[in-house]
Every structure is written in C-alpha cells, then in structure tokens.
Amino acid sequence: MVPILELQHVTKTFEGFTLNDISLQLEAGYILGCIGPNGSGKTTLIRLIMNLLKADKGSIHLFGTSVADDTHAERSVKDRIGFVYDEPCLYDDITPKVMKDLIRTYYTRWDEQEFSRYFELFELPANKPLKTYSQGMKMKFVTAIALSHHAQLIVMDEPTSGLDPVSRHEILELLQDYITREEASVFFSTHITSDLERIADYICLINHGQQIFTLQKDDVLEQYRIVRGSLEILDTAGPDARLPLVGYTKHAYGFEGLTDDVATIEKNFGNQLVIERCSLDDIMLYMTKRRVQP
C-alpha cells in the first residue's frame, strides 16, 4: 500500500540552520506527531511537505506522487489535504462566512453540511468579523475548514498552542473521530507533547534540524525510563556503560536522568535507583539538550 506521506533524506539549508536528512513515512489511518523545541525545524518540515519551500536534497511524496515540479499533480494532491498553520492566515475584516466562501470554491469535495456541523460545534459567531475572534476561535475556524472537504491527510502546525485545555481536548477528539470516519492520516507538529500522548501513533523527534528518531509512540514510551538516585551513585558510576543515561540533571538531593537501556541499569543497580515510566515531555527535555547531558 502506498504511504500517504513519504519523506526520503529531505534536506533544506538556510543561513544558520539546516533541516538535515529527514526520512519518515505515514500510512493511511495513522497520526504522526512531530515534536521538538521551538526552532527545531518542525514548521520548516511542514512548509516542505506543503511545497511552500523546495527541498535542497531528497524527495517528498504525497499519495505516492512527487509534487515538487508538477503543478498539475500538486493541485490534485492539495485537494486531498487539509491544513492548519500555527498562525491562522485569515483576512480580519471579513466575516467567517465570506472567508469560508473564498476558500471552499477551490475544493472539489467541499461539504457544506460538515462545515456547518463543525462551526456550530465550536460555537463560533457567524456574523462577527474575524478580527473579533480570539486566537483560539481562529484556530477552531481553520480546523473546521480543514476537516470539511474530506481530506485524506491533515497537516497541522501547532494547532493547539492557542487553545484552552477544554478546546484542545475537543479538537483532539474530533481529529480521532475524523480519521476513523475518513480513513485519513494526520501529521501533527506540537511542543505540547501531552496532546500526542493522547492521540498519536508515531512520534518523530527533531532537534536543531536533526531527526532524533521516528518510532511508534508505544515503543518510545516503552523504551525510555526516568531514573532517579543519589549523587553518590552518579558520581561513582558516572553516566557510562554501567549507568547508561541519555541525559541527566543534578539537584540538591540527587539526580534524575533518562535512559534507553533500563535492563542494564536494573542489572547493575537493582533497587538502589528509582525507575519510572516517562512522558514524551521527559524524552523531549532530555534528548534536546535543554538539560545537562553526560
């Protein structure tokens, strides 16, 4: 089966930043969450996927088609993509109805009933100009548009960043419902990793333009563990082969670290250390050099 999205060795260089050798694929019916700190390259990756930027190297296939230099293919591929960007691109002076009418004409499978359903569900005011909308309301509006033309791939760049927890939960539930109904896939970038813990099937971690990993979420959460212990253990064993830590931080009462080799640690230290399941937040924090590393 042809993947909905496939990137092979994609590289893009700007002055002072390189998104380097990114490879991943996304099958129909799955959600891939792209995580990484601000400036890691998530938005650049999305701009490359949407052909807003051209890759210097590598290839991007959407629905099995490369759209880089084929405008005809690009049109038919984009008809099958819904998108939500971190900054909603909307004309502020017009009403949501006029804005929606400006967009819907380009989609061959626009579903007005579906749009009305989302619009009502989000309780958006219909007659007020978009400049009166809050950031969260604008995000809901563009999400309603993205989900109203039976898109088979939804590309979202930080869609939940301006939303309160209730709205975030609402949108995540809608996304899950949408991919079940439409057999669609979602490429979702965020730094709110708890959102992805709830809905993602795959996680891609990017830092400083480098792809750290792309793995199934359950495998990621199974592979890594948080380790806590005294400073004496850290100082004597050190973060080496006996105490393999991806990253750690010291505090007054001991240390906390992330390991991807829990078996070795359990073998060498037994119950001297506390070993706990970790969150995606922990993994991102320790793997993106935001804390002291060995």
């Binding site: 052909n51 998108f83 900054e87 691109c89 909307l90 004309y91 967009i103 380009y106 989609y107």
Partner: peptide, 20 residues
C-alpha cells in the same frame, strides 16, 4: 499589501491552486 500583511500567500499556495 493587505495580502502581505495577513500572509495570505501561504494560505492560497496551500490550496489546490497552482502558483501560475
């Protein structure tokens, strides 16, 4: 200028419309 201010280039280039 209105389109530039609201970054509408990005929106329209993401729709099923060619740049030409």
């Amino acid at each position: 200028s209105y389109e530039g201010f609201y970054k509408m280039d990005r929106l329209f280039a993401s729709l099923p419309i060619s740049r030409a």
